[in-house]
Amino acid sequence: MDILFIVSSIVAVIASAMAITRRNAVHALLFLIVSLMGVSMMMYTIGAPYAAILEIIVYAGAIMMLFVFTVMMLNLSVSPEDEKRKTGFKTWIFPLILGAVLLSIMAISFLRDPSWEGLHQVILPKHVGRLMFSHYLLPVELAGVLLLAAIVGAYYLGRTRKRNLHRYLQNQEDSYDTL
């Protein structure tokens, strides 16, 4: 497992470094997703499969999707110099290589003899769940309240204000200081 951890950590560090140095936001997001997958593989190799799966589902699946949708909504990714440059093979080949490395790590760790991976004590999801709903029950409920507050806050900030004005006022709308 040593070599798998080292390779996936190198992939994660390189992808993170690439993510913060890109100019195009969408390219940076691609690298960030690769970085999250690398961290997920690191967690898998040290014996935390539940955290690894959650990392993929929640981070790379849900949070990064929010990022991608926001970047697409704001339409920031297309700048004049990006349009001129050929966006093709060169842009996605590097994330593809990093992702292929991670995929091969996963394939290797699945295809190996199960007795081989007894080096790290694997913590099963059952133990996590049992601990979460007994000893950490109050923090779990507080986390639920935090998520509710985040939903309400995001809705409040992102809502569109619909203004209903009288016909008479609509004509001179420009003179009013809008929010």
């Binding site: 959650l54 929640v58 949070i63 926001t70 979460m132 950490y136 986390a143 935090l146 998520l147 939903i151």
Partner: peptide, 24 residues
């Protein structure tokens, strides 16, 4: 450790939701 990971995940999700709304 994995329970704490879940809490970090929750905080990250809440933070991203509010921060992206502020970004918009």
């Amino acid at each position: 450790g994995q329970v704490m990971f879940l809490f970090v995940l929750t905080v990250a999700a809440a933070e991203v939701a509010v921060a992206l709304a502020l970004l918009i």
